[in-house]
Each structure stands twice: as structure tokens, then as C-alpha cells.
Design a binder for these strands. Sequence first.
DNA 1: AATCCGTGGCG
DNA 2: TCGCCAAGGAT
Length: 293
Amino acid sequence: MPDETIAEAAIRWFRDNARVLPWRHPDAGAWAILVSEVMLQQTPVTRVLPAYEAWLARWPTPATLAADEPGEAIRMWGRLGYPRRALRLHECATAIAERHAGVVPDDLDALLALPGVGAYTARAVAAFAYRQRQPVVDTNVRRFVARAATGLADAGHTTKPADLTATAALLPAEPELAAQASAAFMELGAVVCVARAPRCAICPVVDRCAWRAAGRPALEGPSRRPQTYAGTDRQVRGLLLAVLREAVEPVPRVRLDVVWPEPTQRDRALRGLIDDGLVDPLPGDLFTLPSGR
DNA sequence: AATCCGTGGCG
DNA sequence: TCGCCAAGGAT
């Protein structure tokens, strides 16, 4: 099919090769898709799957989550990481209940105004839940588009307006096909056009890939150095919050003190959690997950 | 714009 | 073993 566009080839491949994921099921509504998108922010699919099912079984609508305590959302989040996402998702559910009559909005600007919903998640919901023609650009799509359309080994570290433009240029005009193409681009980036060892041999777009045509040039710029985790405030925050997640009753400070020997960093981490609204201090030097009022 | 924010699995 | 990183967002 030499006349096939990149999007057409990707869609055709996606129909036969897409992973079966619950948020892709026809029964998945906008709320379920929104929940999945937030959970998938920086967390692998395999770890999201059980948490996603449990979350929706407990809170099948935004209103049910909004009616519960934010601390319960943090507890339910478990070990997905970045627990601020759980708090934001609770705030998001509250905003949907109060401002949108309990219905996840379909308008891009309304979605962008929701807590914890950024450029990626807003467009993902618009495209996957409401079948709109929106460029859905995550790290996988940026890499796929940078290679296939632009010929670069990878995109920059941060998403720029040019990434949206470049992706939108590849989308079919018809909204339903555009939504399918967006899903296909993401899947290709996640499964085939991966960062380390791209599987060009099975790529449905290899014939039209600019990067392949250029001989797969290597990445030029300096690689970003990921900061180490051990010994950081993030680790300490994680340890502190783990204690509170498991506790049924408010926890005395001494039970938090034992998770980290260095008091300055420990106090800074706890103060940070309180500032972020992830922990509530109570009279008597007790601490809990936030009850919400 | 650069930095911060968790977690666990894998080569 | 341990560095590396996986569907971002907020500041």
C-alpha cells in the first residue's frame, strides 16, 4: 500500500495489534478513561491495571469520589507513585461534580481547567472518550513523530507547541479516524518505536519513516541525568506516606520518626507533605491522611 | 525553563 | 548489582 499515509498504516496496524486494555473497551466512559490517563502518568501499564479496576469499582462516577474523603483517594492510590495525582484526581472529581453536573466535560478548555489535567491528559480524554480530532502528544508520540515525520532520533525533553502541530499534521481530517490514529501513534511509540531498541522490522510505517530513511542517526544533544532516588526527599516522603496509608488511626510523630534517621530531612519531608495537602497535622502531634475539612 | 514529585521491574 | 526509566503536571 504505497499510497497509504502514516496515519492510515498506523490505524491498520493498531486494529490487529493493539493490546487489550480495559480503558480501551467500548464500555469505558469518559470518567474511566480520565482515571486511566491520570494513573498512567509516569506509571507503567502493568502496575496501573489492578489499581484501575479497584478504583472504578469503588468510585464508578466523579460524584462518588467527590463524596468521599481525599485521604481515601490517597490510600486507594496505593503504591502507584506520585500520590499528588490521587489528591488532584479527587479535586478533579469535586470540580466535575460541582461545575459540570457530574459529567466529565468534553470541551478542551474545560478539561484543561481541571486539577491534574494538563495538555496531554485533556487531549487524551477529548480524543479517546469523545472521539474528537486532537493531537494527543505524550512521550511516546513525540518520539514516534520525531522519527517518522521529522527524521530525528527523539524529541526534546519537554513538550512544545511544535510537537502538537507536527502531530496534528499527521491526523486524518475525520475526527473518528483522527482519534484512532492518536491511539495508534501512542501504541506504536510504546511497543514498536521504543527509545532503546526500536523494532523497525515489525513497524507498519517503516517505509515512510524519515528517521529510517536518514539511516537512523543517533541522538545528538546531552542526555538528561535522572536524579538518584535513594536519599532524596522523595524517598523520605514515600516512606512517611506509606506509614499513614497503612494506618487506620491517626499516627503519633514517633511512628514517623523511625522511618528516617536524619531529623532535618525528615522534618522537611513531612512539612512538604503537609504543605501539599497530602497529610493533615492534628492536635497532640498526630498525623493522618487528609479528611477534607 | 528547570526542578520537583514515587515506585518497582528489568537488563 | 544498580542504573534506568514508565501514557505528565505544577510551579
